[in-house]
Design a protein around this nucleic acid. Sequence first.
DNA 1: CGTCTATTTGAATGTACTCAAAAGCGGTGG
DNA 2: CCACCGCTTTTGAGTACATTCAAATAGACG
Lengths: 194, 194
Amino acid sequence: MNCDLILKNIDRQVKLSPDEADDLCSLLSVRKIKKKEFLLREGDICLYEYFVNQGCFRAYYLDLTGMEHNFYFAVEDWWISDIHSRVYATPSFCNIVALEDAELLQISQVRLEEFLQRAPNMERFFRIAYQFSLANIQLKFLRMFHMSAEERYRYFRDKYPQLDQRIPQKHIASFLGLTPEFFNTVRSKVLRAG
Amino acid sequence: MNCDLILKNIDRQVKLSPDEADDLCSLLSVRKIKKKEFLLREGDICLYEYFVNQGCFRAYYLDLTGMEHNFYFAVEDWWISDIHSRVYATPSFCNIVALEDAELLQISQVRLEEFLQRAPNMERFFRIAYQFSLANIQLKFLRMFHMSAEERYRYFRDKYPQLDQRIPQKHIASFLGLTPEFFNTVRSKVLRAG
DNA sequence: CGTCTATTTGAATGTACTCAAAAGCGGTGG
DNA sequence: CCACCGCTTTTGAGTACATTCAAATAGACG
């Protein structure tokens, strides 16, 4: 199993001992997912935290009218799960689906909690990771909520150029809270203006 | 110094030993703030994590045109700080101001980090607290971004009835991403309809 | 090659905003 | 205690940004 990427990812925040690293890796399992397959479906309880080794995912929820709303993308070196469902152990409101063939590492919530009890370094890693996520999502919230469609798209391109190339327009539109049609006119305008 | 409320708050997630509780309390100091005084100003680096013992705060940022956008309220038993500024040790984008005379407990970022190194229980507390915040803010993000003005206000009333009563309309309008004028018409409609 | 889905374009509509002005309310000084 | 001032809330008219619906074009996949 290829744990290189995840260990490098963790090493950016905390230094695990070789034993801790081995312990972690022994708890991980590989999961291969084909394009369009679901990692999580609405109503399921999210039992795992996932780390993307390869591929691309989108997380979305369905509103009352059945429309899909994307709210998270994940590619290589990103973590993904439904944190709400996982933490509260309640049925998920959202779906996670592969946009490309993908390989994940997964650790079950139960094993993760046990591991955190005996590995303060990992407790620390997640504390820091969540702290950064929170800092970033708060800023994202400000930006997304008070910016025009064009500003939002410019910000997205700036921040995630690799995603802008890789992910179909309609999913970016949804991520930005726009209709595909209107997003397309915005996008054309931005491309013309540079 | 009155540490009852904060210790109860922490006790909901983790059990601190009496020594750990004393250790924590020795690091806290009381801060009294009058209505309209600033706890944090844009450009300052946020050096503390705060816990509200009494009173009410709003956090907002100024956009390019000088308009204020509220994004967080805190009352008794809530934590508040600019997590982005505090964690990255960069100048804050936001302002935090008291809406009422208030009393806070504060702990400096430096002391907090030191404390977390020696108190795995508190590391755990913050990991869990951030985890819940993240779960909730993600859900809030979904709701706020894809709901109409009226739905957003109904959700706000439902979730924070105490804030709806306590905070001036114009600040709720801003929190919901609406102009005070438009918010007022929405609010009137909701009050009429029940 | 044909089918299905995604993107592009346009017209009509609606939601929320800006600007303007009146009415209400709270605090302060005479 | 009341009158005034400033700030907040309410109301309305005109406008802009984004949506819905419809249809044509382009692209992906079997």
